[in-house]
């Protein structure tokens, strides 16, 4: 009889431990799901862990200069998204790439394009040019890396092909990328398209 009581007592002990362990596991599941629970009779502290998210989005993902031609009296035309058209018949364009950091972490941004001036615009290689210019919308939105300046036009696809443009792009902030094209009078004709890519990761 005494041995049976000891057996039941031991079984109850193990069962209680398993229940305690189950409660611990339940708490782990709740924390993993980023849910918040708390109970206090007087005062207490709720610790909340917000998962890190890195997300960059093009608010405006299209720059379309429309149709135009180089003035017959000129050897090249220059157009950009600052609204400037020189020696060409394109309508002034001010819609530029607008990029926002939707995440909650600083991000590092790299810029690259699918084509360079020769493959995109064609014509006289010493004249054709395809450039981009990164600017902050809010002060301090993008902290540029060493050797790269905001507000300056750079030729695309020069070395390195994918260039770091922001060492730290702050959450909730915006940057713009202007595009500038120099089009020789013997350039490619028709509708020309290129895709620019921003690669990003948490900085």
């Amino acid at each position: 009889m005494g041995r049976d009581n000891y057996l039941v007592f031991t079984a109850l002990l193990v069962f209680s431990f398993s229940l305690f362990n189950l409660a611990s596991t339940y708490n782990l599941i709740i924390n993993f799901g980023s849910a918040v629970t708390g109970f206090a009779t007087d005062s207490g502290v709720v610790n909340l862990t917000v998962g890190s998210v890195v997300s960059i989005n093009f608010t405006n993902a299209s720059v379309n200069f429309g149709s135009g031609e180089v003035n017959s009296s000129a050897t090249f035309a220059t157009i950009n998204t600052l609204g400037s058209v020189v020696n060409g018949t394109w309508a002034p364009e001010t819609l530029k790439f607008l990029i926002i950091n939707l995440g909650n972490e600083n991000a590092t941004l790299n810029f690259s394009s699918g084509k360079n001036a020769s493959t995109f615009i064609g014509g006289n290689v010493s004249i054709a040019s395809y450039q981009y210019n990164v600017s902050n919308v809010e002060t301090g939105a993008c902290v540029p890396p060493a050797g790269f300046s905001l507000g300056t036009f750079y030729e695309v696809n020069t070395t390195p092909v994918s260039r770091e443009i922001c060492a730290d792009f702050l959450p909730g902030k915006n940057i713009t990328i202007d595009i500038k094209l120099v089009i020789p009078d013997n350039s490619n004709l028709g509708i020309l398209t290129d895709t620019v890519t921003i690669t990003y990761e948490a900085s």
Partner: peptide, 11 residues
């Protein structure tokens, strides 16, 4: 990750 945009014009 990456995000893309498009540059287009007609000559």
């Amino acid at each position: 990750s990456e995000a893309t945009g498009v540059v287009q014009l007609e000559i």
